[in-house]
Design a protein around this nucleic acid. Structure first.
Lengths: 220, 220
DNA sequence: CTAAATTTTTAGACTAGCCTAAAAATATTT
DNA sequence: AAATATTTTTAGGCTAGTCTAAAAATTTAG
């Protein structure tokens, strides 16, 4: 139906729209799809003609319902494939993204639905990001930043803010993986670093840079 | 490394080389990749420059070792994905081909190896075709045509000659799937149709058109 | 509120892959 | 062996997607 390139533009614009609000400017898109502003302008005209977004010269773009639907479907496929790669094939947290980036463009509705069922209808991918349902609904999670936890509180690692390989590899190396429990022992008032207990046993120390990029489900 | 299009050309030429022998002519390739002869000539020049095949004007082409390697790798990926789609996701025999045609071009060696392990290192795909090993070796199977079986002999369904959806759907509908046992009761000397017993219980009747397109492993 | 800086768009050109129509080479008939 | 038919190649052109450089619009600064 839509080319790999078109899907990538739509997905990128969708993500920017969530991050930044309404109108998305050319440079931000160029950055997101790794191309030049001139190429973006060309593509905006094309996608606009296809009614996937509304585009006004020099004003920026906004996805139409139709465009949003395609974007969310692509995001759904991406996150289902990430889940497959991590949960079934045993890829590490940081390795799944690049491969899912390719797999998300495979065309077959039947494949998506069968994959979803095979994985047990997961609600979140290996980075804790919510997986849109077949209907396109995204159940936003109530995860909070680990950095807002106070001394004595605890939570379950449920996602990340920073998705870079570097950060994900750091977490993996320190066994800070999805589902682990973290209990805060002490927050340094000097550098905001945190002393904590991982899974009830191991003493760990986390920099503020780390704790402000981990999402947790708070335990009461 | 190589584009989807290049991989498709190489895979097609490889298959033709097995079927027809050495030099493959332009029209046969055009037919295989669903394009026109003029486009094939263009691509042959390109692949020849990349040392993936040797091409002599008006004489036809032949894969180099390098080209053969790429072709076999693509075939390996195709058949592994077909196995995944059938065995894990429950796609029917005839539905797997088109999707595998897309999946075979996903680039990631790690993915291929992990998929192979996940599937338990299968030796044959859902159509009974052998899956090339990581080393590129294809273990040719000793399957024989069901049509050569005599009255009183039996075998296990292990593959097909005709890969068309129409034929595969016909088999599926008649429960003639991989692994089933067929015992020959009688071969008509009029139309070469066959009366047989399926899996030791069900009486079936098969036309010659069907039996000469089914591969079996003969039981003694 | 004008001048400078930035962003965006236009213009023109490139590559991969494909096409049609015509020309050239090869194969087949008579 | 000449005539005809078939196959293959060349020539020129198309689309999707990209790029650079220059022009136009918008935003920011003084």
């Amino acid at each position: 139906m839509y080319s790999t390139t078109e899907e990538n533009y739509l997905k990128t614009i969708y993500k920017l729209q969530i991050q930044l609000g309404t109108f998305i400017n050319t440079n931000a898109i160029a950055d997101g799809v790794n191309t030049k502003a001139a190429s973006v302008t060309d593509m905006m005209k094309k996608l606009s003609e296809k009614k996937l977004l509304s585009y006004e010269k020099y004003k920026g773009v906004q996805l139409t319902e139709k465009g949003k639907k395609v974007a969310i479907e692509t995001l759904r496929k991406h996150r289902l494939w990430e889940t497959f790669l991590h949960n079934q094939l045993g890829f590490t947290w940081d390795a799944v993204h690049d491969i899912a980036e390719q797999l998300e463009h495979i065309q077959s509705n039947e494949l998506v639905e069968k994959l979803d069922a095979f994985l047990g209808f997961p609600t979140h991918d290996p980075h804790g990001d919510p997986i849109p349902g077949r209907n396109g609904v995204i159940k936003e999670s109530n995860f909070i930043l680990l950095s807002v936890l106070q001394k004595g509180e605890k939570g379950i690692i449920s996602g990340v803010v920073n998705h870079s390989s570097l950060f994900l590899q750091h977490l993996e190396k320190n066994k800070l993986t999805l589902g682990k429990t973290i209990a805060i022992n002490e927050v340094s008032s000097f550098d905001l670093s945190v002393k904590a207990i991982l899974d009830g046993k191991e003493k760990i120390q986390l920099s503020n840079e780390v704790v402000k990029n981990i999402l947790i489900k708070k335990l009461i």
